[in-house]
């Protein structure tokens, strides 16, 4: 029987060293809500597990003087929910992260794990894409920054290089009149996996959209940044024509598959439906953020 080694370093340097040294047999353990399930099902048999929760930076949640946030990649959904200001500044990102699994899972699951798992249906990812979040990774050659949308490369795959560990997310300062929202379609009311997920981040001035980003999940091999949808919204007052154009852009961006969770036709339609609904919520929140 193969042996499993468990390491729980206290510093990132140690963690990167151990992770890089162990090569492809190693896996990072944050909340473990994907990793342990994959191990139990027999899908994955790692030789080394590097638990990064003992590294303070990995779970820290900090708001800078400019109002921007730095969120440790292993910070749990519940820690974010309980943070005094995060949910007020990034309600869409928070609601997306809080949709990962059940209440119990929320005590462990993290946005970093959700992103590194590489699933196109990960709930936090479209919201983080819409937010314009940047991730910091550290590897044997030091630190570098990547846009969230550039992290997933294919189902289950990311652009992280061997030995690299995702450290934190940086969310930009919030302008007045901006907010975000995330909606997903699931057949049930909870405990389910997104058939389509849409994150929308808007800035409005005098009722006119001055900035917009749209993230779209579960409709392609990776989560998408839908720039055509954002362009359709920018400059509009979110009138029917603009929303229709943005919804059409989301549907057009879809490259879904027919599978047990939904058909191509269904996912394509729902991407547009959710864009309209999510944009409406984001706009309403933005109007209150003076």
């Amino acid at each position: 029987m193969t042996e499993l080694r468990y390491l729980a370093p206290n510093t990132l340097d140690e963690a990167v060293g151990a992770f890089a040294a162990a090569g492809s047999a190693a896996r990072i353990l944050a909340g473990g809500t994907d990793l342990l399930v994959q191990m139990r099902s027999g899908a994955l048999k790692p030789g080394v597990i590097v638990d990064i929760k003992k590294i303070p930076e990995m779970t820290a949640i900090e708001q800078g003087a400019d109002g921007g946030f730095r969120v440790g990649a292993a910070a749990s959904g519940m820690a974010l929910a309980e943070h005094r200001s995060f949910g007020k500044v990034w309600p869409g990102v928070l609601e997306a992260i809080n949709l990962i699994g059940s209440k119990q899972v929320q005590g462990r699951a993290s946005a970093g794990g959700n992103l590194c798992n590489g699933s196109p249906a990960g709930d936090s990812v479209p919201a983080l894409v819409a937010a314009g979040a940047i991730v910091t990774v550290q590897g044997p050659n030091g630190r570098r920054e990547i846009k969230v949308e550039d992290v997933p490369t294919a189902p289950g795959r990311t652009s992280l290089k061997p030995g690299e560990i995702m450290v934190s997310f940086t969310l930009p300062p919030r302008a007045a009149g901006s907010s975000d929202a995330y909606l997903r379609m699931i057949p049930r009311t909870e405990m389910d996996i997104a058939v389509v997920g849409v994150g929308v981040n808007l800035t409005l001035k005098d009722g006119v959209v001055t900035a917009a980003r749209v993230g779209l999940g579960a409709v392609a091999p990776t989560v998408l940044l839908v720039q055509d949808a954002a362009r359709a919204l920018i400059g509009s007052k979110l009138d029917d024509a603009a929303l229709a154009k943005a919804a059409a852009a989301c549907s057009a961006a879809c490259r879904p598959i027919d599978d047990k969770r939904g058909t191509i036709a269904y996912r394509t339609k729902v991407a547009g439906v959710l864009l309209r609904r999510t944009a409406a919520i984001a706009a309403q929140r933005a109007a209150q953020n003076k």
Binding site: P187, R188, T189, E190, M191, D192, I193, K260, R261
Partner: peptide
């Protein structure tokens, strides 16, 4: 769909 993720029984909130 040999599991409760994709074999969708109702949850309480349904």
């Amino acid at each position: 769909n040999p599991g409760f993720l994709d074999y969708r029984m109702p949850v309480c909130s349904d």
